[in-house]
Design a protein around this nucleic acid. Sequence first.
DNA 1: GCGACAG
DNA 2: ATCTTGTCGC
Length: 234
Amino acid sequence: MQPSDYEDLTPAQAIAYQHELRRQINITPLLSPISIIGGADISFNKYSEVVYAGIVLFSYPELKIIGQATAISKTKFPYISGLLAFREVPALLNAWDKLTIKPHLMVLDGQGIAHERRTGIATHFGLITDTPSIGSAKSRLTGRYDEPGNQPFNQSPMYDKGEVIGTALRSKKNCKPIYISPGHRISMEQSVEVIKSCVRGYRIPEPTRQAHLLVNKIRIEDGDNNNRQINLFD
DNA sequence: GCGACAG
DNA sequence: ATCTTGTCGC
């Protein structure tokens, strides 16, 4: 199965593929040192098939931006809860291929194994590129958890079917928690530690925060090359 | 059948 | 996700 063929898959076929990917997930501690970390995100205009993908590279743990790559592509696969990767990974790979240097670890905007089939976008991307990855989501997809305390870095485990699938992390006081889960080739504990070391005063950790700013910037610049936005509260 | 539901 | 302005709370 090639990412370029994702848009031809039916939801049932996409789910079948996730079951296949699930068998290859490796959630063991990352042993090699990391000095380059990347953040990825997607942006798009409502009702448009154009998607803007971007990846920002940082030195780690200093978190100085040392590179980036973007790609503008199209997708027909709609957003379906649980199948986000089939809509966004193809675009992200186009940006990934443009990187002259590959990061040692990637942070994706979405779930890792904190997914019904343990195949969130971070896990999916990590498997496809064979790169250690972490999922950092702004909201919960699945899993039960107790609300973490209201102090920075207070955390609470997320459970699903008897297993720990993620960590609800209070990245900033008085802000909703973010949901961290390993994507591939990294442990739950390491994932949380890395994300904590990437928080710089904002709820969203720098890798995905900067990637988000980047893709929105190129989307506005592109103006979607003639796509209009009509908004009457929908 | 009902409620939930990453971006 | 995206569109929007003001507004409430730390």
